[in-house]
Amino acid sequence: MKKQWVADVSLLAVAFVWGATFVVVQNAISFLPPLSFNAVRFWLAGIFLLVWACLFHRPLLRLVNQPVLIAGGWMGIWLFGGYALQTIGLLYTTSANAGFITGLSVVIVPFLAFLFLKQKPTTNAVLGAMMATVGLYFLTMNNGEWSVNRGDLFVFFCAISFAFHIVITGKYASHYPALLLTIVQIFTVAVMCSILAVLFEEPTWNHAVFARKEVWTALLVTSLFATVAAFLTQTNFQKYTTPARVALIFSMEPVFAAITAYLWANERLSTFDLIGCSSILVGMVIAELPLSLWIEKRRKNELTL
């Protein structure tokens, strides 16, 4: 129980870091194209982790084998899809919207875990996911009408990719060292972003771009904190909890994104946004309540009457 509590708090910290970086990334990609930004971000993170491993965990590197490369590569593919689609979506939608729509992974994960890991969703997870869905619906309301722009659509597919990443991480995290899995998946993302950036984006590699405070600050924050620290934490602690629980904890990410967008980018939340945010929080509370245990206890009490 203590390990699960520590895991939950650690993953909540990860959700905060990810939520707080939406505004930072959105500012940076106005100067550096999204795939190029992610390529530099993940190369920096991968190199940092590799140097760290060589200095302090060299014996661990001897454990690198084909199964580790396959597991980390598979995780990296879904991670790439999530970040690529999310960063492109930020070109066309707000930080708050991107954060909340990314939270759709909360709804998707329990069903993916059931399909691929045969983990039946708990009553708590289903009710919490339903409440989060209601909240996400209100967050896509525009003047009382439901509407989705191009950026929202990109981020929706990003949510699907992140949901797969959570499930795949849950499958492999307990079988292989967290550091090795993190290094492999990060380099996988770096390589894939680099290839697609060369193929589909105009080259913007010049000193003027990287000299801008918005760009180098975003690269440092996202590579060291939102990538290295965050994915080491997720890969290490997810083994002590379930994919559905991780997804519900990560549903706090859009709440943190909205708060930081309000504080740093002056993005205002409408009435519908506030309702949606509140619904997600209620969904989190419902998911954490021991509802299934309460129902079982009540049934036992009825049988004894």
Rank of each mutant, 00 (worst) to 15 (best):
L63K: 13
V64F: 11
N27T: 00
A13K: 00
F210I: 08
D273S: 14
H175F: 12
V285P: 04
L263M: 12
F225L: 15
T123C: 07
V17N: 07
T93G: 07
A258S: 14
Y262A: 13
Q234V: 08
N149K: 06
D8I: 07
F138G: 06
M284R: 00
G283F: 13
F37V: 07
V189S: 06
V106W: 04
A261K: 09
V209Q: 04
L269Q: 13
I160R: 02
R245V: 06
N124K: 10
F200W: 10
F116K: 07
I108Y: 06
T87D: 11
S161T: 13
G103V: 08
A84M: 13
A257E: 01
W264R: 07
N206L: 05
L115P: 00
V148D: 03
R268T: 14
Q26F: 08
T169E: 02
W43T: 08
F187Q: 04
G72Y: 13
G19E: 03
E296I: 08
A125M: 06
P243L: 11
F272C: 01
I259V: 12
L90R: 00
W52V: 05
S174A: 15
L50A: 14
V25N: 01
E202M: 05
V6H: 11
V134G: 09
W5P: 00
I286G: 09
S95M: 07
I108M: 12
L305H: 11
L219S: 03
L196A: 14
A28V: 10
K2C: 06
G89D: 07
L289A: 15
Y83K: 05
L60K: 03
N97G: 10
I249H: 00
V25F: 01
F200G: 09
V255K: 00
A257D: 04
I168H: 00
F42A: 00
L293M: 12
F16V: 09
E253H: 08
T217K: 10
K3E: 15
V198Y: 14
D8Y: 13
F111D: 00
F37Y: 15
N97L: 07
N266W: 09
T21N: 12
H207Q: 14
L305R: 10
I183V: 15
V40S: 01
E267W: 08
L12I: 12
T222V: 13
V209N: 01
A287K: 01
F22E: 03
F157E: 03
T94R: 08
V126D: 02
P290A: 14
F22Q: 04
T260D: 01
A129W: 03
T94P: 09
N65T: 06
V184C: 11
R62Q: 13
W43K: 02
A190Y: 11
L180C: 07
W146G: 01
H57Q: 12
F225D: 03
W52Y: 15
G103Q: 04
R41P: 00
L11I: 15
E267G: 05
G99R: 05
L281D: 05
V25S: 02
A13H: 02
A53H: 00
I286D: 02
Q185T: 12
C54Y: 08
R58T: 07
L12M: 15
Y83E: 07
L180W: 11
P110A: 12
L220H: 01
L112H: 03
I88K: 07
I195M: 09
